[in-house]
Design a binder for these strands. Structure first.
Length: 543
DNA sequence: GTTAGGG
DNA sequence: CCCTAAC
């Protein structure tokens, strides 16, 4: 995956535990807790590759892990300078965030990486520069200037009004504050970060302020959130950022102007001035307070989409499934609900088919749960229900209600009294002739007993028919096929609800049964014959 | 997870 | 169609 990801692999000759002590340059390194630089593991590389591939995606991964920070160092073979490598500045800032944002939270100002680690990093960077052209070295020098020369600490002395500073001055101040350079161009962001660093606090007012003796002095007095949790304010920022991301139609130039004009405001996202920049800003938020997880409703919507895709997939392959695919695809909804039964169906937008809703829920439920649901008292012997068991049916029912909105429970779910006096639910869906024919086809093709295969290959579009259903139906078909031919006379009219299975199909079933009996004579046929009562079939295979 | 068989 | 044992 990372081979075509644009960044190279780590040198194969390096072992993961080996320190950087030779001219070999690790293209991806990780800063250990004690500041050592170790080559990145494959997993970390993968992670970073994702980040580099898609700038808008994956920053939160780093934000959440908060440990493995990638530092990319291009070698001379690609001819790229460090700053050209997309994402480098981003990583630098991510690293800085981990270093500086965590400090106030943990109540310590000590940087994560001690000087030893910085020295080693510098060493490795210098090693990388050995092979670089002079102008590239200059670039690199600016990148690691924080470790090579002292910043101008006068920038952070006395009273500072960050509003009046230019970007360059802000960079200087930033460097004096954090001991490193930044490539961020967002003045508001710089200002806020510097203020956070100087005051060792994340409670930075949204209006103009000056910093004196590491304290914030407000200029305009609308600051009323002093006592508020800073997470609240940041949360608002996140919302603002998200909003602006959605309608970032305006040109970035204009937004840059806006950003500079409204210098006192915490309008922090200045549009895609530089993708990495705005990402850094939101990353900063993430490091303080993570973005809210998707709401339940959102999750439901997502799963709805997933389900539609799944349904589409389960229907479409049926068309390419042998010769009987199109038949099923063209099957109208009426065939699904014969005998004037009403089933809840829904139009699948992908395939244009009516798909029964019942397929979306788990078919069988433990009877215990149902009894718990209905409120039946258990005898002490039967009551194995734990608290969890009691909760579960409610969830199931909830799902079902959501799916089959209206009259779902009327017909396709009937309640059957059980022997214990309880009530259990029972699905019923009459087998259509088409399904029966399909089943017979499947048995003839794949053999009786290979129900899962038949289900998979011939009943892929009938999600409500399980392999057990197929098996049961086949059993009934066998019974019917070896039973005497039905006579309409003595029939109870109530039984006429389901259309009789054509004799031709029953004959076919019998053929197949005998065929199968030949193949494995010790199986069902013998039993079936035994219990079949008056068997008038030819039992040639058995004899 | 699948199948067979009783209910 | 449900349930469960057996595999």
């Amino acid at each position: 995956m990372f081979e075509d990801g644009g960044i190279g692999k780590i040198s194969p000759s390096t072992s993961p535990t080996k320190q950087i002590s030779d001219p070999v340059v690790y293209k991806l390194v990780r800063v250990e807790g004690d500041g050592r630089l170790v080559p990145a593991t494959d997993d970390e590389i993968m992670e970073v590759v994702d980040l580099l591939k898609d700038d808008t995606n994956g920053m939160h991964i780093v934000a959440e892990s908060g440990q493995a920070m990638g530092i990319s160092i291009e070698d001379s073979s690609s001819g790229k300078s460090l700053s050209e490598l997309s994402g480098f500045s981003k990583f630098e800032d991510v690293y800085a965030d981990a270093e500086n944002v965590e400090a106030p939270i943990q109540g310590t100002a000590a940087p994560v990486a001690p000087s030893l680690g910085i020295d080693q990093m510098k060493q490795s960077v210098e090693a990388a520069e050995c092979a670089k052209s002079p102008d590239q070295i200059r670039e690199s020098e600016s990148m690691c200037a924080a470790t090579s020369s002292l910043p101008d600490f006068s920038k952070v002395k006395g009273e500072i009004c960050l509003d009046n500073l230019s970007i360059r001055e802000l960079h200087e101040t930033f460097r004096a504050t954090f001991g490193r350079v930044t490539t961020a161009k967002d003045k508001t962001w710089l200002k806020r970060r510097i203020a956070m660093g100087l005051t060792n606090s994340c409670d930075i007012p949204s209006t103009s302020f000056v910093i004196k003796d590491n304290q914030i002095l407000k200029l305009s007095e609308e600051e009323n959130s002093n006592n508020l949790d800073c997470a609240v304010a940041i949360d608002q920022d996140v919302v603002a950022i998200n909003d602006q991301h959605t309608d970032s139609d305006t040109s970035q130039k204009k937004q840059l102007e806006d950003c500079q004009i409204i210098s006192g405001k915490r309008l922090r996202n200045c549009g895609p001035i530089e993708d990495s920049q705005s990402e850094v800003v939101s990353q900063e938020q993430n490091s303080v307070k993570r973005l809210r997880k998707p709401t339940k409703r959102y999750i439901e919507e997502v799963s709805e989409v997933e389900h539609q895709e799944r349904t589409g997939r389960s229907v479409i392959p049926a068309k390419s499934c042998g010769g009987d695919g199109p038949k099923s695809a063209a099957r109208p909804a009426k065939n699904v609900s014969p005998n004037s039964r009403t089933y809840v169906t829904r139009l699948d937008s992908l395939a244009g088919l009516w798909v029964p809703c019942v397929s979306r829920v788990r078919r069988s439920r433990p009877r215990k749960d149902i009894m718990a649901l209905v409120g039946i008292e258990f005898t002490e012997k039967d009551n194995q229900c734990t608290a969890i068991d009691r909760v579960e049916p409610e969830q199931n029912l909830e799902v079902k209600h959501g799916d089959s909105s209206d009259d779902a429970s009327k017909d396709n779910i009937v309640t059957v009294p059980t022997a214990k006096g309880g009530i259990r639910r029972k699905h019923h869906r009459a087998w259509t002739l088409a399904e029966v024919m399909r089943l017979v086809e499947g048995v003839s093709k794949y053999g009786a007993g290979r129900w899962s295969e038949i289900k998979r290959l011939a009943f892929a579009s009938y999600s409500y028919r399980t392999s057990v259903d197929l098996k049961d139906k086949w059993r009934n078909l066998l019974k019917a096929s070896f039973a005497p031919a039905p006579t309409d006379k003595g029939m109870n009219p109530r039984k006429h609800l389901s259309a009789p299975i054509p004799t031709q199909i029953l004959l076919r079933v019998r053929e197949l049964a005998e065929l199968h009996a030949q193949a494995s004579p010790n199986l069902s046929t013998s039993k079936l014959v035994g219990c079949g009562g008056s068997v008038n079939g030819t039992r040639s295979g058995y004899l």
